[in-house]
């Protein structure tokens, strides 16, 4: 809805503005862009994207890379341009936590809750960090981690 020019140049701007926090910028196709970000700076980066017309947080998801790494993947896009920016933040697997985006994108809430219950990634300052899809007894099992023992459930 902003009238800014929303295209791949945002990636150059992004890496210029956040020199230390953004790395591995890649533009695999005209409508996709990938970058790796520093988890400490996620809020600033997202605020920058929002100010530059990327007004739609499409998705937040987690990926588990045992034994020591976990990733939070953000897909940010815009209502006025077809570019999808994929941002990845690596976290340590033994204590994964990252800042919540609820203050920037309102709809981050459920995505973060979902990622929390499935992966155990804590989002600091998320207003309601509780299970969303699972039963409450399953909090702490983190079923989508690769070493989850409850799958396959052959009972």
């Amino acid at each position: 809805m902003g009238d800014e020019k929303i295209d791949k140049t945002i990636m150059i701007e992004l890496s210029n503005t956040f020199k230390d926090a953004v790395s591995d910028v890649d533009v695999p196709s005209p409508n996709r862009a990938v970058a790796r970000i520093d988890p400490g700076k996620v809020k600033e980066i997202m605020q920058f994207l929002l100010d530059n017309g990327f007004d739609h947080l499409s998705c937040v998801s987690g990926v588990d890379y045992p034994p020591d790494k976990m990733e939070v993947v953000y897909h940010v896009t815009s209502y006025s341009a077809p570019l999808v920016i994929t941002l990845k933040a690596s976290l340590p697997r033994d204590d994964p936590n990252i800042d919540s985006l609820c203050g920037i994108y309102w709809n981050a809430n459920w995505y973060e809750r979902e990622t929390y219950e499935l992966y155990g990634i804590k989002f600091n300052d998320c207003p309601y960090m509780k299970v969303l899809l699972l039963i409450e007894e399953m909090e702490g099992e983190w079923p989508l981690r690769k070493d989850y023992a409850g799958y396959p459930d052959l009972t």
Binding site: L134, P143, Y148, G150, D153
Partner: peptide, 9 residues
């Protein structure tokens, strides 16, 4: 049928 969340039987 193998999922962690569903009840079979």
């Amino acid at each position: 049928w193998e999922s962690y969340s569903t009840v079979t039987h």
